[in-house]
């Protein structure tokens, strides 16, 4: 790099750039917070939905599945699973309940988590709420 461009100038670009863009990021975050209620339908986050999120987390579902495209890529996307199962909580519950404890020979299988009826209902309610988030049209189709 040329002699005219000094270390002090490089340092100033670093500190100036970092501070400026972090402040811009904070401003955008503030704006996002204002926009989110229209998109996440937080008025529908009932106690049951919140409990469903806990069930989701405490069984590490994200370790195999994606949720809105984030997570592991071993098992299907679940952000739209409520819709894929024909807008049916019962379908989701029946699927989770019927997983064989010893798996399926040679194939990927979801573990049998032995969830209570209350936990199953909460989880399904959480996935139903998640399917109603405005995700800008993602995923491209029902297969996730």
């Amino acid at each position: 790099m040329s002699e005219k461009f000094t270390k002090a100038m490089a340092r100033n670009i670093f500190y100036g750039g970092a501070v400026f863009f972090f402040l811009l990021f904070l401003a955008l975050t503030f704006d996002t917070h204002g926009e989110l209620p229209k998109r996440d339908h937080r008025e529908n986050i009932t106690e049951k939905v919140a409990m469903g999120k806990m069930v989701w987390e405490e069984n590490d579902c994200i370790g195999c599945h994606t949720l809105l495209g984030e997570g592991a890529y071993f098992a299907p996307e679940l952000g739209n699973v409520y819709k894929r199962f024909g807008n049916s909580k019962e379908g989701i519950i029946a699927f989770i309940k019927s997983r064989p404890p010893q798996g399926i020979e040679g194939r990927r299988s979801m573990p049998q988590f032995n969830l209570s009826d209350e936990e199953l209902d909460a989880l399904a309610e959480f996935l139903k709420w998640a399917s109603e988030i405005n995700t800008a049209g993602w995923p491209p189709n029902i297969q996730g």
């Binding site: 590490d60 994200i62 370790g63 195999c64 404890p101 399926i104 040679g106 194939r107 299988s109 573990p111």
Partner: peptide, 12 residues
């Protein structure tokens, strides 16, 4: 798919 299942499932 069922390698080490259910002892070490994929998520673990």
């Amino acid at each position: 798919g069922d390698f080490l299942f259910p002892e070490i499932p994929f998520n673990v």
